[in-house]
C-alpha cells in the first residue's frame, strides 16, 4: 500500500447513482427514521430490500413491512485498528444484524463503546447480541443515516454510597492496641481452652465470656486459600491469594493475604510469616501487616491441621 500516492482515482463529489423504486423506498423510509423491509412472493422479509428475491430471482411484492429497530447479531468481526474509510475512528465491530421481523441481515458498524486502539474484542460482543440503530440527527436517505448500531440497554450503574463511623468495640479495640505494638493477641476460652485470635471477648462455641489474654506468634500455617482475580487495593497484584492462616499458638484461623509467591504455588499446609510494614507506619490497624509470606520450613501435614480447616 503506497504511503504517498502519486496517482489518485476519484469522482469529486461522489458518483451519482439512481436507486430505483425498491432501494429508493428503503432509503426514503430510512431518512424518516424507519427501518423497512420488502416481502417476497414466498413471504420472507428482505432487509435491506432488493428488487428480486435472492433465493429465486423473482420480483418482490409491493408489500412493505416495518422491522426492528432492534435486531440480533448473526456474526461479527472486530476491528481493533480502524481504517480511514471505516465509519468509526475507534475500535468497533462489523456485524450482520437481523432486524426483528426480517428474514435477512443488514451489514453495519456496531459501536461497543470506547476502547483503546488495538483493544481485544469486548466480552459482551457475541453472536445473538441485541442491538439498535443510532440514528443521525440530520438524515439524507443513505445507508449511513444510521450512524451505527449499539447494544440494547441491559444494565445501568447506580451510584451507591453511605457513610458510617464504626468503632472496634472493647475486645477488638484491645486486639488492635496489640497490633499497634507489633503483637498479635488472643483470648483463651476457660471452657474449651481454645485460643481465639482475634479475640471477641467471648467464645462462640461455648457462649462464655473470655478474658485471659494470650500473645501468639506472627508465623502460622495455611489451612485453606482462594485465588482472587478481581483487583483489590490491599493486594499487590492480580491474581492474589487470600488464605486462612492458623497462627502458631492460636486455635482459630485468621483471614489474611498471602504474597511473595506465585498464586499457583500456594498450598494447604504451607508455612508463612507476617510481613509487617515499617514500624514508624504502625497504627491500631490490621494494615500494619501487609500480608503473609512463605518461610523456609517444611509444610505441615494435613493430618495436623485438618481440625482447623
Amino acid at each position: 500500500m503506497p504511503s504517498s500516492p502519486n496517482h489518485v482515482l476519484e469522482f469529486p463529489g461522489g458518483y451519482t447513482r439512481s436507486v430505483g423504486p425498491v432501494i429508493g423506498r428503503f432509503l426514503t423510509e430510512l431518512r424518516d427514521g424507519r427501518l423497512m423491509g420488502v416481502r417476497t412472493a414466498g413471504g420472507r422479509v428482505l432487509v435491506p430490500p432488493t428488487e428480486y428475491d435472492p433465493a429465486t430471482g423473482e420480483a418482490v411484492t409491493d408489500e412493505w413491512v416495518e422491522v426492528g429497530p432492534s435486531g440480533t447479531v448473526q456474526t461479527w468481526s472486530w476491528v481493533a485498528h480502524p481504517r480511514p474509510e471505516h465509519p468509526l475512528d475507534r475500535p468497533f465491530a462489523w456485524a450482520l444484524i437481523k432486524p426483528d421481523g426480517a428474514d435477512t441481515a443488514l451489514l453495519h458498524a456496531l459501536d461497543m463503546g470506547v476502547h483503546e486502539a488495538g483493544a481485544k474484542p469486548p466480552r459482551q460482543l457475541k453472536t445473538g447480541l441485541r442491538v439498535r440503530p443510532k440514528w443521525r440527527a440530520e438524515r439524507s436517505g443513505h445507508i449511513s443515516d444510521i450512524e451505527c448500531f449499539r447494544p440494547e440497554v441491559t444494565m445501568i450503574t447506580a451510584p451507591t454510597r453511605q457513610e458510617y463511623t464504626l468503632g472496634a468495640g472493647r475486645a477488638l479495640g484491645r486486639f488492635l492496641e496489640g497490633i499497634a505494638e507489633g503483637k498479635i493477641l488472643g483470648h483463651r476460652c476457660p471452657v474449651c481452652d481454645s485460643v481465639i485470635v482475634p479475640m471477641k471477648g467471648m467464645c462462640a462455641r461455648d457462649g462464655v465470656p473470655t478474658t485471659e489474654e494470650v500473645e501468639v506468634a506472627d508465623t502460622g500455617t495455611v489451612t485453606t486459600f482462594a485465588v482472587n482475580n478481581i483487583p483489590d487495593p490491599r493486594a499487590p497484584e492480580v491474581p492474589f491469594v487470600s488464605a486462612y492462616i492458623l497462627l502458631d499458638g492460636a486455635d482459630i484461623p485468621m483471614l489474611a493475604l498471602v504474597a511473595g509467591i506465585p498464586a499457583d504455588q500456594v498450598r494447604i499446609g504451607m508455612r508463612v510469616k507476617a510481613a509487617w510494614r515499617p514500624r514508624e507506619e504502625w497504627g491500631p490497624t490490621m494494615a500494619n501487616i501487609k500480608w503473609f509470606e512463605p518461610i523456609d520450613e517444611p509444610d505441615v501435614p494435613f493430618e495436623r491441621i485438618k481440625d482447623y480447616v
Binding site: 432509503l27 435491506p48 456474526t75 468481526s77 476491528v79 462489523w94 443488514l106 451489514l107 445507508i143 449511513s144
Partner: peptide, 22 residues
Amino acid sequence: DPYYLAPLGPDQVSLAALQARA
C-alpha cells in the same frame, strides 16, 4: 453493492472475518 455495503467502507478482511466467525 454500492447502495448498502460500499458506502459503509467495509474492507475485504473485515468481511472475511464475519464469515470466519460464522
